[in-house]
């Protein structure tokens, strides 16, 4: 073992230690763990957010329903995961507690960004505290917020710029969909559409091709499920470890959050609807 290898291993062991070029190897390995996980995608639509995820069924005997990729954490928020499933579940539990704490303290649902930030803070602590390792999972945090306060005002301003002066006053509560990615380093980013996990680069470039061009604002429309499924298909062709690479209702999890499904606590896409959606991809 030469001296450079020994030194490298030292940086490997404690994630709290920087390498000489300023990297945290353990955090990068955690990102690698996410890259190996089956992918999840999220798409913001005009009225809500769609999450879709690929489930990895390593045996035909495995019960598909027991593989959970998308978790409801509150009425108006859901989380899609990629990476170590056990780590992801701990983060989901943290998220659920955080949601309820906000409701108890402030008598209202937590804003999606506030939740994403809180989860990111929690993840960051594990990259700095002694005796812990980073979470080997990334999350897509999707939510439909009540849409008021400063966000509401900003929209009012843009509306009044293009048309009538006074809109509806008090309680003009336009629901506001939001999508955030939270990674093992403990950062959160807002997206209009993105993916985590295996094949992210392909999925993201597919979504960019569809949405980043000229009339991007009107790109998705109300129904984001077809786009979400299509993007998932765009990224799953090269997953070598999968025994079954084809998308089917068995291997796909999807959830649609809109003001309606928030109110009904519904939104999980059923097998039939999934079969229809996937059939249209052909």
């Amino acid at each position: 073992m030469d001296s450079s290898t020994t030194r490298q291993q030292a940086y490997d062991r404690g994630h709290t230690i920087f390498s000489p070029d300023g990297r945290l190897y353990q955090v990068e390995y955690a990102r690698e763990a996410v890259e190996r996980g089956s992918p999840s995608v999220g798409v913001v639509t005009d009225t809500g957010v769609v999450l879709a995820a690929r489930k990895r069924l390593r045996s035909p005997l495995l019960e598909s329903k027991s593989v959970e990729k998308i978790h409801r954490v509150d009425d108006h928020v859901a989380v899609a995961t990629a990476g170590h499933a056990a780590d992801a579940r701990q983060l989901v539990e943290t998220a659920r507690k955080r949601c309820q704490r906000h409701r108890l303290r402030y008598a209202e649902p937590i804003p999606t960004e506030t939740l994403a930030e809180a989860i990111a803070d929690h993840i960051q602590e594990q990259t700095q505290a002694g005796g812990t390792r980073p979470y080997g999972a990334a999350l897509l945090v999707a939510g439909v917020d009540a849409g008021r306060g400063r966000e509401r005002k900003r929209r009012k301003e843009s509306e009044s710029g293009s048309g009538s002066g006074s809109g509806s006053n008090a309680a003009g509560q336009h629901p506001q969909p939001a999508l955030y990615e939270v990674d093992p380093g403990g950062t959160h980013y807002g997206w209009r559409a993105t993916a985590i996990g295996n094949g992210t680069a392909d999925i993201r470039s597919f979504l960019e091709g569809r949405l980043a061009d000229s009339d991007a604002e009107a790109g998705v429309g109300e129904d984001g499920l077809p786009l979400a499924l299509e993007s998932l298909a765009a990224g799953t062709s090269e997953t070598e470890t999968d025994t079954d690479t084809e998308l089917s209702p068995e291997t796909v999890d999807a959830l649609v959050l809109t003001p309606d499904t928030v109110a009904d606590r519904a939104g999980a896409v059923g097998e039939e609807e999934l079969a229809d959606g996937l059939g249209e991809l052909e």
């Binding site: 402030y106 960004e113 306060g149 400063r150």
Partner: peptide, 21 residues
């Protein structure tokens, strides 16, 4: 603290709930 954490104004109900606690 609420305003900085959520980037919006707390409602009257939120303020009353916090006051009660």
């Amino acid at each position: 603290r609420y305003e900085h954490a959520t980037d919006r104004s707390p409602s009257v109900e939120t303020t009353a709930t916090v006051a009660g606690d």
